[in-house]
């Protein structure tokens, strides 16, 4: 496996592996303090504070879900109102056409339905999934990222990235191994 380093074109980044979440967290913080920005950490489970350590800000999922919920509630209520008042006006039990308390169960269900669909679609969409190809999978050891190992990848696109210097930096973080990631 010969990688062309000329202009670092064949290289996605440098990846360090760890056997526990704590050294990964320390390394990610260290890398951020060092000035690296284009990087990501990979873990087989959520690790508290890891996303912040690699510089992730502004999780917009909750706001999108809130909008979805409002839309669902408004849509559900609007549909019931439109059916009973405009499309098919029908007096039942002597109640007024706009007997809105009876629309509340459906309004609630539509709110939950649309908010839930939004939550999943927003999460997948913002994460860029489904994604058929990603360079990190070129590293053979990376299959343990879904089992028991923790990885930090500093990407070649980072302005501060320098093969030798970055490798030296990662090796100071006491990793199990530092590997090159083919693009």
């Amino acid at each position: 496996m010969e990688i062309e380093y000329e202009g670092q074109s064949g290289l996605y980044g440098l990846m360090a592996s760890f056997d526990r979440p704590e050294p990964l967290l320390d390394a990610a913080r260290e890398a951020h303090a060092e000035g690296y920005r284009d990087m990501d950490a990979y873990a087989p489970m959520p690790v508290e504070g890891l996303a912040e350590a690699v510089g992730f800000r502004g999780n917009s999922v909750p706001r999108i879900v809130f909008a979805g919920g409002l839309l669902g509630a408004a849509g559900g209520f609007g549909l019931m109102w439109w059916i009973s008042v405009i499309a098919y006006p029908h007096i039942v039990d002597g109640r007024p056409l706009n007997s809105w308390p009876a629309y509340i169960p459906i309004t609630f269900e539509c709110m939950v339905l649309i908010a839930s669909l939004t939550a999943v679609v927003a999460m997948l969409g913002l994460n860029g999934l489904p994604q058929p190809y990603h360079p990190v999978f070129n590293v053979p050891q990376f299959e343990r990222a879904s089992r028991d190992q923790f990885f930090l990848c500093i990407e070649a696109t980072d302005p501060k990235f320098d093969l030798a210097a970055t490798r030296r930096f990662l090796e100071q973080q006491k990793p199990l191994e530092v590997m090159e990631v083919e693009a």
Binding site: A28, D40, A41, Y42, A43, P44, M45, P46, V47, L50, A51, A53, V54, F56, N59, V61, P62, V65, G69, F108, E109, V112, A115, S116, A119, V120, A122, M123, L124, L126, N127, L129, P130, Q131, P132, Y133, H134, V136, F137, F142, A145, S146
Partner: peptide, 27 residues
């Protein structure tokens, strides 16, 4: 779907999962 355990992905994932739990409870 190409899940790779990225820290950013986990962050959005946890938020979405928690919101789904919050929505399922009254549901």
């Amino acid at each position: 779907m190409g899940w790779r355990g990225s820290a950013r992905h986990w962050s959005r994932y946890q938020k979405a999962y928690l919101l789904l739990a919050g929505l399922s409870t009254p549901l």
